[in-house]
């Protein structure tokens, strides 16, 4: 479904992603693991087209020079230069890190905004799906998203991404800053979303809670791919286990 080949991302002379290749097959849950500043967020943002948007903005105003090269295919189509909106329309939807929500909008307005490119009937159906996945959201639907707890905001953020009807859902550190109970809730949701036919690419710093649900994983450091394999293969690697999985 998604093929990234020899991707390189520079911010001025700093190399954020270094000759990285990865593949996500339809129906899989693929993890990308790495420590702080490993390049996970840059990779996720580049797949979603946000780095490209930033690059164009900086180019226009003569600011920071951002360079992106390599190849990025989604369902066989080259999307490396595509706008974020084009990618969302094709089904690539990013749920950004740190529970990004529209703080001054209600929960329901957030979910509606998630379905911005979809038809009204689809939006209604997707909002229903989000409420079924995270029942507490329905009770909170009239509340401003900025007034919710971190865990509730993460549910809204995931619900918003789901309202966009993704084929490939990219989740950037969805467990960051959540309580263990809330982490389990998000992992349960990931499993359920995958069961409903959505392919998932998930970045996490601390991999342990998501290991039971991933099919394959990539470990990156300083923007470079260190090792890849199935969940079991990664867990069997003693260096990877101690460095990233906390076991």
């Amino acid at each position: 479904m998604l093929e990234v080949k020899n991707l390189m991302v520079f911010f001025e002379n700093a190399l954020a992603v270094n000759d990285l290749s990865l593949e996500v097959k339809k129906g899989e849950i693929v993890g990308v693991f790495g420590s702080n500043s490993a390049g996970k967020t840059t990779l996720m943002n580049t797949i979603a087209g946000l780095t490209q948007h930033m690059m164009h903005r900086e180019q226009r105003k003569g600011g920071q020079r951002i360079t992106i090269s390599g190849e990025m295919l989604f369902e066989g189509e080259d999307i490396l230069r595509a706008k974020p909106s084009r990618r969302v329309a094709k089904g690539i939807v990013l749920c950004r890190e740190r529970h990004p929500v529209f703080k001054d909008c209600s929960v329901e307005e957030n979910l509606r905004l998630g379905g911005y490119l979809r038809k009204e009937s689809e939006i209604r159906e997707r909002i229903r799906y989000a409420y079924d996945l995270f029942p507490p959201l329905e009770r909170l639907k009239g509340k401003k998203a900025g007034m919710l707890s971190g865990g509730e905001q993460e549910m809204v953020a995931i619900g918003m991404a789901l309202a966009a009807r993704p084929k490939l859902l990219i989740m950037d550190e969805p467990l960051l800053g959540l309580s263990p109970a809330m982490q389990s809730e998000v992992v349960r949701a990931v499993r359920e979303i995958s069961r409903d036919g959505v392919t998932i690419l998930l970045a996490e710093q601390y991999a342990r809670p998501v290991m039971p649900v991933i099919d394959r994983g990539y470990v990156i450091e300083n923007g470079t791919l260190i090792v890849s394999g199935t969940g079991k293969e990664l867990l069997d690697n003693p260096e990877v286990r101690s460095a990233y999985f906390g076991v």
């Binding site: 979603a48 087209g49 946000l50 948007h53 974020p84 909106s85 969302v88 329309a89 939807v93 990013l94 749920c95 950004r96 990004p100 929500v101 529209f102 703080k103 001054d104 909008c105 307005e109 509606r112 905004l113 998630g114 379905g115 911005y116 490119l117 918003m160 991404a161 309202a163 966009a164």
Partner: peptide, 18 residues
Amino acid sequence: LALRGMAQDEYTALSVGI
């Protein structure tokens, strides 16, 4: 609603296709 979303958080708005 899209305009309000963009005013609040540009990158989140971009990530849902606005």
